[in-house]
Each structure stands twice: as structure tokens, then as C-alpha cells.
Amino acid sequence: MAKKPPIFLERDRYRTRRLVDALRVLPILAGILWLVPALWANDTQNPPEIARLAIYFFCTWALMIVLSFALSRRLRHSAEFAGGIGTDGPSAPRDRD
């Protein structure tokens, strides 16, 4: 019989899972942030200054880079991934056919 996966994980693995969740969310957040000017710049009569837009893009971009850097730093030190960026655990969804 295959062992049933545990429902709860110990603290370290739990933290790692949430770290991975953060990694997954990051590009979505970036995508949304880079669409914000689409709402903001919609006013064709009185468009925002282009320099401000540029500053907005570069700042959010830098922010994303810093977040990504911090996350990958944390991930490197986390226990579960010491042996390589590994497998999705038992709780990961599996495709069935």
C-alpha cells in the first residue's frame, strides 16, 4: 500500500512551500503592476507625463528584482531544496489521465 501523505507538514517544509507560493505569485504581481499605467494613462486629453511613467516602470521593475533576489536567497537556504530544486511534494496537484 502506498503511504498516505501527511496532512500537516513540519515547520521547515511549511515555510518552503509558502516560499514557493510567493515565487509563483511574483510574476502575476509584476504583470498587474505593469498594466496599471493602462488605466492611469487612459485619459487621452491629459496624459500623464512620460518621465513619470518611465520612473514608475523602472521603480516597479527594480522592486520585482529585489523581491525575486530575496526569495531565491531564502530558497537556497531552505532545507527541502538543499539537494537541488526538487520535486513537487505529495501535496502538489497531480495530473491524472
Binding site: 515565487l23 509563483r24 510574476p27 502575476i28 509584476a30 505593469w34 521593475w61 520585482m64 525575486s68
Partner: peptide
């Protein structure tokens, strides 16, 4: 440049 940045940021996917 933003497109590839998105892909790299979302490397886990």
C-alpha cells in the same frame, strides 16, 4: 524587455 522579465520572474512556473 518586460515580457522576458516576466518569464524569468516566473521561472517556477
Amino acid at each position: 524587455y518586460l515580457g522576458p522579465s516576466l518569464v524569468m520572474l516566473g521561472w517556477w512556473w
